[in-house]
């Protein structure tokens, strides 16, 4: 079975739950008192998708403003970006739109974008209507899910959706996991239409 390494970064405002999503996905646990991330933390998880193994190399970036300028290091060469907002904070949804713009301008050309509206367990305090977010995601051809890292809702689904959208090894022309890389990486050599 072929193993493919996929670099994935998480972006979004501080406190929206990026690290919690990664913890839920990788360790299946939740800590309400998680510390703010410094720079970025790195974790991996391998899952089977069809007849391939996808090893996600996850860069969970810091949301704090002082680390803002470091983001390009983490989305550079990424096959996918998960941009997270907090459904109970309208402002975090605006920040998300800025991330989308930055990725469009400076990110890898065919990066798969997933939008995660986290903390969907707190729907009483909702500020961002699901439909607005869904419409926005559709307009930019992004994956969209509302998630709860706390209650383990839709976390694995985000990554499954990403796996689905990753171009085939053959189509991409080069495998990211094995063999020699000639010229540009797979993520750069295959442009989606948008």
């Amino acid at each position: 079975m072929a193993l493919r390494e996929l670099k994935v970064c998480l972006l979004g405002e501080t406190g929206v739950g990026k690290s919690s999503i990664v913890w839920r996905f990788v360790e299946d646990s939740f800590d309400p008192n998680i510390n703010p991330t410094i720079g970025a933390s790195f974790m991996t998880k391998t899952v089977q998708y069809q007849n391939e193994l996808h090893k996600f190399l996850i860069w969970d970036t810091a949301g704090q403003e002082r680390f803002r300028a470091l983001a390009p290091m983490y989305y550079r060469g990424s096959a996918a970006a998960i941009i997270v907002y907090d459904i109970t904070k309208e402002e975090s949804f605006q920040t998300l739109k800025n991330w989308v713009k930055e990725l469009r301008q400076h990110g890898p050309p065919n990066i798969v974008v997933a939008i995660a509206g986290n903390k969907c367990d707190l729907s009483d305090a909702r500020e961002v209507p699901e439909k607005d977010a869904k419409d926005y995601a559709d307009s930019i051809h992004a994956i969209f899910v509302e998630t709860s890292a706390k209650n383990a809702i839709n976390i694995n689904e985000v990554f499954i959706e990403i796996s689905k959208r990753i171009p085939d090894v053959d189509a991409a022309g080069a495998s990211t996991g094995r063999g020699f890389k000639l010229g540009r990486q797979a993520s750069e050599s295959h442009r989606t239409c948008c």
């Binding site: 410094i38 720079g39 933390s41 790195f42 002082r66 680390f67 300028a69 470091l70």
Partner: peptide, 10 residues
């Protein structure tokens, strides 16, 4: 500096 901080953390 934030870059160095991130590197040390890594």
């Amino acid at each position: 500096e934030p870059c160095l901080e991130a590197a040390c953390n890594d």
